[in-house]
Design a protein around this nucleic acid. Sequence first.
DNA 1: AAAATTACGGACAATTTTGTCCTTTATTAT
DNA 2: ATAATAAAGGACAAAATTGTCCGTAATTTT
Lengths: 144, 144
Amino acid sequence: MFSKACEYGIKAAVYIAYKSQTGDRVGLGEIAKEIKSPVAFTAKVLQQLTRNRIVDSVRGPTGGFRISKEKAQRIKLFKIVTVIDGDSIYNGCGLGFRYCDENNPCPIHHKFIHIRSSLKLMLETTSLFDLSSDINEGIAFLKK
Amino acid sequence: MFSKACEYGIKAAVYIAYKSQTGDRVGLGEIAKEIKSPVAFTAKVLQQLTRNRIVDSVRGPTGGFRISKEKAQRIKLFKIVTVIDGDSIYNGCGLGFRYCDENNPCPIHHKFIHIRSSLKLMLETTSLFDLSSDINEGIAFLKK
DNA sequence: AAAATTACGGACAATTTTGTCCTTTATTAT
DNA sequence: ATAATAAAGGACAAAATTGTCCGTAATTTT
């Protein structure tokens, strides 16, 4: 479904949002450990998120990553997925055709359209804040 | 969503089902040309479909691939996808966790469960016959 | 000012996926 | 029987994705 990079990106962002509640920043090392991801690779993904202003980073001691509560509420999964994986998951044709639409549908176009739009809607309506709250309340987990 | 191999597999199977209506077999060359896929790579995919008895192949002159009408009605997309890509699309966790379920959900588990199950249902209920009929009637296309 | 810490960024390596080439095997037509 | 045809299958190659290493830049502490 999503690339590994995107999976790490989502997990990292959720963890950062979760830890940012106390106000202080989280370091790369802690993030990678908590979401069980390769450190250097996670660093690359976080760079993407930083460049796209999804997370906010500061170098040096006491530095690290952070996402304000307001931002966590505003940023939706949609944004992260689009930045890392592009729009093909929710916009692309199920069979990979470049030009596939209502007027020129591939064989599975109509079967797929509902699934893709509900996926898109879910991504568009799920905020980092929603997800980090679930971690907070012990409803969801980032490990195991 | 699906791998390239799986996309080619679905297209090839639909085309074979479509051409099998007249009774005669289709060769690899024609299939690859019609679905615009790399010939040798498509051959590998067709071998998988053949080994799993999704299509039926015969070597030598007048040989080629075929799918009987009965089989086209019986074979669902689900089978093809599972054989080529495995079950991770409809069974796997959205964030790639090995153990993610109702009792130990990842942050997006509940958001995803509906999408995954409707994808699975769609794959389970769409037969090759359905798809090839649409080609037949000019409702859907395999090219462009 | 110097040292320590942490993200940034470039280059490189491993793995997986995608794609090619060529020989072998089965089948049919001559 | 022999030649021709078409799929099967193994080995190899290219590209994309995933992952590592190491020096640089920014920031804070001493």
